[in-house]
């Protein structure tokens, strides 16, 4: 299940909350239900090069050398980020 912090419109404040840019820059708590404007953001778990494993970690195959990765890592500035198939994202 995706969280507010998984959304492209979300600007993080801290580990509990952030700002929703899609709804007028209001403060939202991460662990509350998302809204219809949810758009998958930039995290390893949304990347086609990410292969999920256990404990929220997996493998990144995007670079020359494979390396472990974790699902919630921010990937907005990763040069290899490619959005994965839409069906992977459960809003």
């Amino acid at each position: 299940m995706c969280k507010h912090s998984d959304c492209a419109n979300y600007i993080p404040i801290d580990v509990a909350k952030g700002i929703c840019h899609a709804n007028g820059d209001i403060t939202v708590q991460i662990d509350t239900p998302t809204c219809p404007k949810f758009t998958p953001g930039f995290k390893c778990k949304f990347c086609s090069h990410y292969q999920a494993g256990e404990q929220n970690m997996g493998t990144c195959t995007g670079f020359e050398d494979k390396f472990w990765a974790f699902a919630d890592n921010g990937a907005k500035n990763c040069e290899k980020f490619e959005r994965g198939a839409a069906e992977k994202v459960e809003a």
Binding site: I11, P12, I13, D14, V15, I19, H21, D25, G74, A75, K76, N77, C78, E79
Partner: peptide, 21 residues
């Protein structure tokens, strides 16, 4: 190269040490 670069509403001066405020 890879750190998230959040910009918060109404900021003029931007930057963050890590991905949080």
């Amino acid at each position: 190269q890879h750190l998230d670069t959040p910009i918060w509403p109404h900021e003029l001066l931007v930057g963050a040490k890590a991905g949080f405020y």
